[in-house]
C-alpha cells in the first residue's frame, strides 16, 4: 500500500502540491497579520486576543485545505477516470480497491497533515511577527496553546473526512469542476464564521460530515471489483 501511495505521489508530482501549500501558508500569514490591522482601522475590536486569532487562522487553514482536497480528488481520481488512465491502473495485477484506497489515503492524509502543519506554521509566524509588530497586545498562555492544539487535531481529522464529500458529486458526471465547486461550497457552509459562531463549532455537524465523507470514500471502492469500467 505504501508503495502504491508512493507511485501516486510520483506520477501526480505531489511535490508541486506541497509547494503550493507553502505558498498558501505565506498568504495566510499575510492575511492573519492584516486582519487585526483592518480591525483597528475600522474601529472594531474583534481580533484583539490570541484566542480569536487562532480560531481565525484555523478557519483559514481548514478552508484552504478542504479546497486542496477537492483539487486532489479531481486530479487523482476524477481526471484519471476521465482520461482513462484509471483503465490502465485497473489492468495492473493489483486489486482495484487497493488502487482506490491508496489514492484516498493520500488525499485525506495530505489534508490532515497540511492542516496540522499549516496551523502550526501560520500561528507561529503570526506570533513571531506580532512580538515586534504588536498587532495585538494579548499574551499567549500554555493553556491556549494546548487547547488550540487539541482542537486543530480534531478539525484536521474532520476536514480530512469531509474533504472527501466532493468525490461523490464529482464522480456523478466525472467532472473536475463539479468536484472543486462542491469543495468550495463545503468551505462556505462549514467554514464561515459569523461573530464567532460557525457551523463547524457545533460538534455534531463536522462529525457527521466527516462520517459522510469517509462513507462516500468507502462506497467508492466497495463494489469496485465487480463493476465494469467504461
Amino acid at each position: 500500500m505504501l508503495n502504491l501511495i508512493r507511485l501516486e505521489m510520483k506520477k501526480h508530482k505531489m511535490v508541486a502540491y506541497v509547494k503550493a501549500a507553502f505558498i498558501a501558508n505565506i498568504m495566510m500569514i499575510v492575511l492573519a497579520c492584516i486582519l487585526p490591522i483592518i480591525d483597528s482601522i475600522e474601529g472594531d475590536s474583534y481580533f484583539v486576543d490570541y484566542k480569536t486569532m487562532l480560531i481565525a487562522i484555523d478557519t483559514m487553514v481548514r478552508g484552504t485545505f478542504i479546497v486542496f482536497s477537492g483539487v486532489l480528488i479531481a486530479r487523482l481520481i476524477i481526471d484519471e477516470y476521465k482520461n482513462k488512465t484509471m483503465h490502465l491502473l485497473f489492468m495492473y495485477p493489483i486489486k482495484r480497491h487497493k488502487i482506490m484506497l491508496a489514492k484516498l489515503i493520500l488525499i485525506s492524509s495530505f489534508t490532515f497533515i497540511a492542516i496540522v502543519i499549516s496551523n502550526f506554521i501560520v500561528s507561529a509566524a503570526f506570533y513571531g511577527i506580532n512580538s515586534f509588530a504588536h498587532f495585538i497586545t494579548d499574551t499567549i498562555t500554555m493553556k491556549i496553546i494546548v487547547e488550540q492544539a487539541v482542537k486543530v487535531l480534531f478539525t484536521a481529522l474532520f476536514s480530512a473526512g469531509l474533504g472527501l464529500i466532493p468525490l461523490y458529486f464529482g464522480m456523478m458526471k466525472k467532472s473536475v469542476s463539479t468536484t472543486i465547486v462542491t469543495s468550495v461550497l463545503l468551505v462556505g457552509v462549514v467554514g464561515s464564521d459569523i461573530n464567532g459562531f460557525s457551523l463547524f463549532n457545533v460538534i455534531a455537524i463536522p462529525v457527521t460530515l466527516a462520517a459522510i465523507g469517509f462513507m462516500i470514500a468507502y462506497m467508492s471502492f466497495k463494489n469496485i471489483e465487480k463493476v465494469d469500467v467504461n
Binding site: K11, K13, N83, K84, T85, H87, L88, M91
Partner: peptide
C-alpha cells in the same frame, strides 16, 4: 501485455 482501444498515458510525463 495489452493495448485496449487506444493507448492512454500520463500525458504530462
Amino acid at each position: 501485455g495489452c493495448i485496449i482501444e487506444y493507448p492512454v498515458f500520463y500525458d504530462k510525463l
